[in-house]
Nucleic acid binder design. Sequence first.
DNA 1: ATAAATTATTTAAACGTTTAAATTTTTTAT
DNA 2: ATAAAAAATTTAAACGTTTAAATAATTTAT
Lengths: 344, 344
Amino acid sequence: MKKIGLKDVANSAGVSISLVSYVLNGQAVQKKVKKETAKRIIEAANNLNYKPDLIAKSLKMSKTHSIGLIVADIDYRYTSGITKAIEEEAKRCNYTVIYGSSNERRDAFVELINVFTNRRVDGLIIIPVEGCEDQLHLLQGYGIPYVLVDRLFKNIDSSYIGLDNFQASYNATEYLIKLGHKKIFFCNYHTTLFHLQERNRGYKKALLDYKIKFKPDWLIEIPNIPEDRYENVTHGLNDVFEKKKECDAVFFASDNLAICGLKYFIEKQIRIPDDVSVMSFDEYDEFEIFYCSITHSRQPLKEMGTLAVKTLVNLIEKRGVGKHITLKADLVAGKSCKEGMISV
Amino acid sequence: MKKIGLKDVANSAGVSISLVSYVLNGQAVQKKVKKETAKRIIEAANNLNYKPDLIAKSLKMSKTHSIGLIVADIDYRYTSGITKAIEEEAKRCNYTVIYGSSNERRDAFVELINVFTNRRVDGLIIIPVEGCEDQLHLLQGYGIPYVLVDRLFKNIDSSYIGLDNFQASYNATEYLIKLGHKKIFFCNYHTTLFHLQERNRGYKKALLDYKIKFKPDWLIEIPNIPEDRYENVTHGLNDVFEKKKECDAVFFASDNLAICGLKYFIEKQIRIPDDVSVMSFDEYDEFEIFYCSITHSRQPLKEMGTLAVKTLVNLIEKRGVGKHITLKADLVAGKSCKEGMISV
DNA sequence: ATAAATTATTTAAACGTTTAAATTTTTTAT
DNA sequence: ATAAAAAATTTAAACGTTTAAATAATTTAT
């Protein structure tokens, strides 16, 4: 079955191609098309079940109405949440999402940037990987608008939607301190990613403000390798609990780390919150099946995704200027932090 | 900065556009381009940082090298797992993924089919929604190849990658029976979706084969509305546990149902497996943070995603014929099923 | 030295749209 | 009845590629 094009509709309605184009694009009155002719054209289009070829349109208009989305890993709860919001908002704004995942690998990221620009996406939403600054510079050179999500590079001037990680981390730590915790461990990835470092900073600042002296071995650093995350967390926590270091609480800097930690605690029969308090950055819905609900900070994923699209579309259509938007996290109180600890 | 096209490269190298096209598409020898000329062209292309316009290419070749992926909800563990595998394999096959989510709504699904076909995707991978058979027929009419994943329609002849749901459900039920369970409840969505009905069938067949008389109130049916899933599961389980019906085990037909169930059991302080055994279809990694590991059937998500792409690409390129592939689930034994029950 | 064969390169049409400019038809004014 | 104005429609070029066919340049055979 041959594809139906404007030409076919034109023939069927007995008019020229351009008239069909005008009518089907809602320019009927502006171009002074006779009512009757317009009607005939529309009927013909319907009869033939005409479908515009968006590829041809894109070529002519140098506008694809598509945005590239590059995520770091769709299996992160953060990513699927934000992806969902992005797709929904994109639909609302009449854009289609072209999807790619770097899986935290630079080479895959570079490849995606390449393919997406060749595909002439109108813009990009990017959860970047470590060490991809050069690629972002490239995009700027090409004049392709993009917005970063979650992860920020200080030395790159771009639009950005993310969390106020410093504040969120500060608040979470403060929450623990106010409950009387003193020896607060912090489990984070060892990384150059700014947003994760901000969490360190928030944690340490809270300790400082409350006159708790931070001890270097309170920081449990995990290599950022998804495959053996659990082993690494186990190793880090063993270092605390096997050696019976004094520890009131462990604050996990991400949901995935927390999951590993909780698994560890179950295995070692360490009771939450009796033996140790637990705080998590980010959440899985499934936290709710832990025997005690986990206190955690919650990011407004839906809002972030929506804002990312809105900002990008603005950049694309209004040629607006880039900006940083940082949102606040909510602290969702569970039962994983011991209350009324004796202040020593 | 103006976009560099073949024309610019041609000018720079002092040759015609077609020669550039030949060389850059690896047809240099076939078209007998002089070695030296070819070299000059390649250099020019590099110098100017030429990037082919894939839109123009698509138009000319009537081939977009893109596949549409329509999921039902990216927040399902099943979906993100399979999406990950699909994107990876698509990359390997030189296809880009255009992503859309129906969020289980027919109207969104229809809209996506429309946009994707207008975008001239080469094919589609679809996790369909209830009642979208007409749309699949449309696709067949257009001659656009597609493969269904997870969910199957009996009355539609299409390629399909999914699980042997009947067998998986049968095996899980059998597992419970063999541990001595008699009163086995089954919690499933109330749905017309074939793959979920197959799970019912497997459950019932196992009971039958082991001469356990199925009682209608063992089937806990949950309306398929994500928003108030928890309330509905609670309601269903209350009907069992508040009324103190005799119940050895509850078999949840999906991971999301299981999560709700586990939450309920925690709230009501019903102990697993002491008070009741739990079996789940599908898993979340986070099952591992439940106080006892949950026995469940595991679908080979990665394999499914990979196969979906392979099958589709085959359909697209080799004009191969559609086929059904059903894979087997693994039963992952946890600690949520009581052992050595007295056979009454 | 010339024709034929081979090698190398260019021309031009096409893919399905959009749209400015040109043209034809109809209406209005005289 | 005719000119001018307005309304309706068509023509043709363009977007950036690919590729068959035409042409030009070089080599080989006579």
